[in-house]
Design a protein around this nucleic acid. Sequence first.
DNA 1: CTGAAAGCGCTTACAG
DNA 2: CTGAAAGCGCTTACAG
Lengths: 335, 335
Amino acid sequence: MEKKCTLKDLSKILNLAISTVSKAINNSPEISESTKIKVQNTARLYNYTPNKSAQNLKSKRTKTIGVIVPDLLSHFFAMAIHGIETEAHSKGYKIIICLSNESREKESESIKTMINGSVDGLIISLSKETQITGDYGHFEEALKYDFPIVLFDRTFERMICDKVSINDQLAAKEATEHLLKTGCQNIIFLSTIYDTSVGEKRKMGYLDGIKNTGIQSCILKIANYNSFEKLLLQQLQNIKVDGIVAADELSAISTIKYALKNSYKIPEDISVIGLTNGVLAKNYAPSLTVVDQQATEQGTLATKTLIKRLDKQIPSEPIEHILKTSIIQRQSTFP
Amino acid sequence: MEKKCTLKDLSKILNLAISTVSKAINNSPEISESTKIKVQNTARLYNYTPNKSAQNLKSKRTKTIGVIVPDLLSHFFAMAIHGIETEAHSKGYKIIICLSNESREKESESIKTMINGSVDGLIISLSKETQITGDYGHFEEALKYDFPIVLFDRTFERMICDKVSINDQLAAKEATEHLLKTGCQNIIFLSTIYDTSVGEKRKMGYLDGIKNTGIQSCILKIANYNSFEKLLLQQLQNIKVDGIVAADELSAISTIKYALKNSYKIPEDISVIGLTNGVLAKNYAPSLTVVDQQATEQGTLATKTLIKRLDKQIPSEPIEHILKTSIIQRQSTFP
DNA sequence: CTGAAAGCGCTTACAG
DNA sequence: CTGAAAGCGCTTACAG
């Protein structure tokens, strides 16, 4: 491995001071055209590129953003990160990704290793465990030093920092109202994520949606996909159901799958609406009507907000963005 | 924003030399137990954490790995990155992710910004454009300096570096043979990606598979999903077909969808096998038999190889790993 | 216009 | 056992 060329190497080769070489390379107006050209040419010749760690050490900025998400395999986070990366890249930032795997411990560890000069700011969607335990101690240090953090999607209202989210409660309410509009009279809420803040909000939205309609609320919690079919069938046989609001994409698709398998017609017997969009929703037969969670947009906006914060382009009070969701009408509900 | 505590700060507080403080914190045997304790306590008290950029500058190592992939939205890469992150994390490495968006330009840019002391090594899956143009000039500099690179999945045989991949041609051959084994006699190959290197290899594998079986080869190319149903039906009415090898996941799922819609039974009338695994394949009804591309495993192995290379635990000649693919038997083919 | 010097925050070989 | 000094590679205020 050849050694990388440094300013010092160039200065020796060119017989100039290191500082002169540095300025010439950075196109400082202090330096004469002729030496600039000379320096830049030999720099190119020797494939000189400035050492990032050294630059970061001086500038106290790394031009990288840390991202901590629960996982990458769910389409939502993959899309969000896509949005984050695209926006970051367009502003000259790189992103470092850490996965919390829904574990508070790993989230904590990631925060710790990233806030020590590895990144300029953090974009985080909270892990399930953090939300369940309600223990936000691992954010204390970062917040104490005013380390810039933007929370997105899975946020925590009492944390003082910038936030980007959708109104999950409203989204679920609109989903419920959509079913009402298409004529459903017995709408239940099905959730496999009832222990997250998002799951809770969506449930509340469902309750909002049926308020004053005379519909009896009914919430079907399913902890494990192994018992999905059994629990769903029990429910369908137990009370009349003609509409289901599912708290996420996979549970909505599973609902359709098992309902069809047991000879229910979708949407004739049961309309199904899901609370996130993804490949499954789009390509399933029947395709799934969903409330879009604006994954890419959340990522993009979180990044924009963070960079503005870093550039001190926004007032010091935390900003909270709430994105509008929209319903994508497909085949699992009546038009 | 309070200033972060540094060694210098601690040394002033403790009335010790910076070097002593540094050694005490790093548990050097040179330092007496008593001062170690004193130093470590006040370090904790002041929330001291070493500055990463400074450490990197000294050690010339960043303990981070750069990852460049074409996109994140395809399940394959999301899984691969999942594997990379998990393995990297377990070895104390962070990962920086850049997306090439299938563009050679962006790939090149990412390489350039990462090899300057931002990361210790690179894991890359080549962009489509790079593969089509065959222009690998942007790797020259990195290779010249023996910068550690591991290529995975979309590799380039003439590049001298470590590689991890599967044998696409063999995978398609095995898919075809799987259909033969289950009794199919009229097997066609369906592809929407016939213009990529991978698509070409899979087609070759199909041809390998039917060689010496007396089966008439038939390749159905579909350029656009808008005409998918029409072209598929034409084909099915035109000649007898009882088995379809689809070149990727979505085209396999679409095949099932439109076949079912037109009253063909899967697998009774037509068996379908797809060449990548993903959420769709797993959750569709019927679920799709696939040749698994070992996404996570490719990611994991690429990371292991890279870290071994960084630790100089492997001989200097490049290593090429070819992972065995395996068939995941599901409902779209007979057992 | 060029250069010497200080400093970013750390580590480590060397003295004492 | 403790500390002074050099150095990682860069930038920049200050002299000349």
